[in-house]
C-alpha cells in the first residue's frame, strides 16, 4: 500500500489493520523513545550515584542555619571552616543557597523548589491542553499550550540564572571550589542534559502551538500531536523529580 503517513494517522491503525497495544504508531514510538531516553538519564544518574558514593559523605554543617546572614566570601569561609574539602562530597545545602535579588542570606533549596513548582505547573497546563484536544476545543488547546511554553521558558531562565551563579562562584567542568572536581562536572552534565531536554520541549511546544493556531489539527480531525508532545513534556518533568531528589535533597 503506497499510502502516505497522513492517511495512516487518520485511521489510527497500523499496516495490519489493527493497533498493537491499542495506541497509534506515533504514540507507541514516543513511548519507546522515552524509554531509551530514560536509559540515557539513568546512566547519568548511575554515574552520579557511583561517583558520589566513591567519596566520603558530606560533612554535617553545624555552622550556617537557613535564613541566617552570610558574608560575601561565603565559599572561602566554608573552605576555611573545613566544610569544602577534596575528600568529602560537598553538602548541596551549602552550594545551592542563592536566590535572585537576595544577597548574603543562606537560602538552601528555595530557588530549586520554585523551579520544581514551575515545572509541575507547566506539566498541568500541558495535560489540560491534551484534555481540551479530546474535546476539539481549539482555543483552549492554544491557551494551555501557550501557558506551557511560558512555564518552560521560565524554568529555562531559572536554570540559566542557577548556572550563572554557580559559574560565578568558580565552578568549572574541571575544577570547583566546593570539593571533588566531579561534583561540578556532574552538575553541569546532568542539569545541562535535562535543560537541553526542556529547551527541545519548548521548541516542540512552539511548533505545536503554531500548528494549533493555524488549524492544522482541526483539519486533521484530532489533536494527537499534542498528546505525543505532552508525553515528552511530562517525561522532562519526571526526570526533574529525580534530579531534584538526588541532586538537591540528598
Amino acid at each position: 500500500m503506497a499510502t502516505n503517513t497522513l492517511s495512516t494517522e487518520k485511521k489510527f491503525t497500523w499496516g495490519g489493520g489493527k493497533s498493537p497495544f491499542s495506541v497509534s504508531y506515533g504514540k507507541l514510538m514516543m513511548w519507546i523513545f522515552l524509554l531509551s531516553d530514560a536509559f540515557t538519564f539513568s546512566s547519568l544518574l548511575i554515574a552520579y550515584g557511583f561517583i558520589r558514593h566513591s567519596y566520603q559523605s558530606p560533612i554535617p554543617n553545624e555552622i550556617v542555619k537557613p535564613l541566617s546572614d552570610v558574608g560575601h566570601n561565603f565559599v572561602e569561609h566554608m573552605q576555611q571552616a573545613g566544610l569544602f574539602v577534596q575528600e568529602n562530597w560537598p553538602s548541596p545545602e551549602l552550594v545551592f543557597n542563592h536566590f535572585p535579588f537576595i544577597h548574603g542570606i543562606h537560602l538552601p533549596l528555595f530557588f530549586v523548589s520554585l523551579m520544581t513548582f514551575i515545572l509541575i505547573f507547566s506539566s498541568v497546563t500541558m495535560v489540560l491542553a491534551v484534555e481540551a484536544g479530546h474535546r476539539m476545543a481549539k482555543d483552549e488547546v492554544a491557551k494551555y499550550m501557550l501557558l506551557t511554553i511560558i512555564g518552560g521558558a521560565a524554568f529555562l531562565g531559572c536554570q540559566a540564572w542557577e548556572w550563572n551563579t554557580f559559574i560565578g562562584e568558580g565552578a568549572r567542568l574541571y575544577s570547583n571550589p566546593f570539593g571533588p572536581r566531579s561534583f561540578a562536572a556532574l552538575f553541569f552534565i546532568v542539569t545541562g542534559f535535562h535543560g537541553f531536554h526542556v529547551f527541545s520541549g519548548v521548541v516542540l511546544n512552539v511548533i505545536i502551538y503554531l500548528n494549533v493556531l493555524a488549524g492544522t489539527y482541526e483539519k486533521r480531525g484530532h489533536y494527537e500531536m499534542v498528546e505525543k508532545v505532552g508525553l515528552y513534556w511530562h517525561f522532562v518533568d519526571l526526570v526533574w523529580v529525580f534530579v531534584f531528589t538526588f541532586y538537591y535533597l540528598l
Binding site: 489510527f12 493497533s19 497509534s24 504514540k27
Partner: peptide, 8 residues
Amino acid sequence: HTEEHLEH
C-alpha cells in the same frame, strides 16, 4: 477501518 476513531 475508515472511521476516524481514536483506537485507544
